[in-house]
Amino acid sequence: MASRDDLGLRRLLGQEMLPLLVAAMAFLAALSIGGALEAQAVSRHWQAGAARSATVLVPNPDQPLPRRDNGPEVTRIDGVLRVLRPNQDLAQVHQLSPDELGRLLGPWLGNATDPRSLRLPGVIALRLERDDVDLVVIGQQVAAIAPGTTTEGHNAWIGRLLTLATSLEACAFAVLGLVGLVAIAVVIAATRAGLAARREAIEIVHGLGAPDTYIAGRFAGRIASSAGFGGLLGTLCAAPVLAGLAVLSAPFLEGAPFALPTRIEDVPPILLAVPVLPLACALIGYLTARLTVGRWLRSLP
């Protein structure tokens, strides 16, 4: 609608930088979102693997336990297994065979060494039925049977991973907030420049009876399309970087670099920010310009 550009906004000078600046801002925002997202995915993956497993180490596994009530002789490791196997909270109780131990330790010991010749503790891998199984109680039970036996859950690690992921997410939100504020400042500056350049046209159109909402809406529409375009540009530029991040984090995820969530509840809230980034830029541009022009117009009668 060339003939309707009454405020001359299509050829408005001093606005060429706006899309570029907004693009830079959208780029930063996309990176911070993407970084937090990757950290979250990696931590979730590790968490899922670690949360329901624990390890029991039985020193001197083959030594006999003190005989009780003239029963048969039982080794320390069998004694521990007898306590663990009936436990309903444990989905799986698996004693690592010497072969499995050898495979685990091979990289450190070299294949030449037969692990059987070392005085290794017996290792029992536990898979827990639920997340909230109390490992302390289990640890006390097995240590009472075979003194010196230790039980390690992976809770401490999970706690640290969670803290890390939450901090990264908080950082991403902080960066997003800051970038948003800078974007608002940039839009205000661009709008003021536009107002100064079109002061005469605005006064004429205002004098002909154009309401403030009309003039502010015109400016806001023009700024919003500039900012939206910039947002799209920035997000597109960030895409290869984000893909690179995904490739780098793939080994930690032991699978597809990125699996699309199948249920909406599984979508991390921060991921939703990426497709709406250009829209958010446009919206920030629209609202900021509209308010800026609206305030400026109040100086006219």
């Binding site: 003939s3 550009d5 009454d6 005469e200 046209a201 004429i204 159109v205």
Partner: peptide, 11 residues
């Protein structure tokens, strides 16, 4: 006069 410089006579 106060015509808009970027619009033609018709507009």
């Amino acid at each position: 006069f106060r015509l808009l410089q970027h619009l033609n006579a018709f507009d």
